[in-house]
Amino acid sequence: MRNLSGKTVIVTGGGGGIGGAASRRFAEEGAKVAVFDMNLDAAQKVADAIREAGGTARAYRCDITNRADVDAAVAAAGAELGSIDVLVNNAGWDIFKPFVKTIPAEWDKLIAINLTGALHMLHAVLPGMAERKSGRIVNVASDAARGGSSGEAVYSACKGGLVALSKTLAREHARQGITVNVVCPGPTDTALLAGVAEGARDPAKLLEAFRSAIPLGRLGQPDDLASAIAFFGSDDAGFITGQVISVSGGLTMHG
Rank of each mutant, 00 (worst) to 15 (best):
T65S: 09
G55K: 13
V140P: 00
L4G: 00
N181W: 05
S134E: 03
A230S: 11
L251T: 03
W93L: 03
F99N: 05
K109I: 14
P187N: 13
A213M: 13
P215V: 11
E172Q: 14
V247C: 06
R211F: 02
D48S: 15
G177M: 11
R61I: 05
A213P: 00
R25A: 15
G14I: 11
L126M: 13
E52L: 05
V125D: 00
L87C: 09
S246I: 00
R175M: 09
G117C: 12
V180Y: 02
G6C: 07
A197M: 10
G82V: 10
K7D: 06
E80W: 01
I113L: 03
Q44G: 10
G55R: 11
P203C: 08
G147F: 12
P187L: 11
I95Q: 09
M38F: 05
I10H: 08
L119C: 05
T252M: 15
L81T: 08
V11N: 07
D202T: 13
R211V: 15
I10K: 12
N89G: 15
S156A: 15
G255P: 11
V74D: 08
A118V: 13
E208S: 14
I137A: 02
R175S: 14
T65L: 05
E29P: 04
A164D: 07
E29K: 14
D108T: 14
V46K: 01
H254Q: 15
Q221F: 08
I214C: 04
A47N: 07
A209T: 13
R61S: 14
N114T: 09
A144D: 08
K133Q: 15
D202P: 02
L192C: 07
A73F: 02
V35P: 02
Q176F: 07
D41K: 15
Q243F: 00
M121G: 08
S83A: 15
V100F: 03
R211C: 04
V35Y: 01
A130F: 01
A68W: 02
E152S: 12
H173I: 00
G20S: 12
D235A: 13
R51C: 14
N139T: 07
E52G: 07
E106A: 14
G92Q: 10
D202F: 12
V11H: 06
V33F: 01
A76Q: 13
T56H: 06
V138S: 01
G16A: 00
I95N: 00
H120M: 00
S246V: 08
L206E: 10
S212R: 15
G54C: 11
M129H: 09
R132F: 06
G161I: 08
D41M: 10
I111L: 11
F99Y: 14
P215D: 13
T179Y: 00
S150T: 12
A79L: 12
A49Y: 04
V183Q: 02
G82R: 09
L206I: 10
A164Q: 06
L119W: 09
L192K: 07
G13M: 03
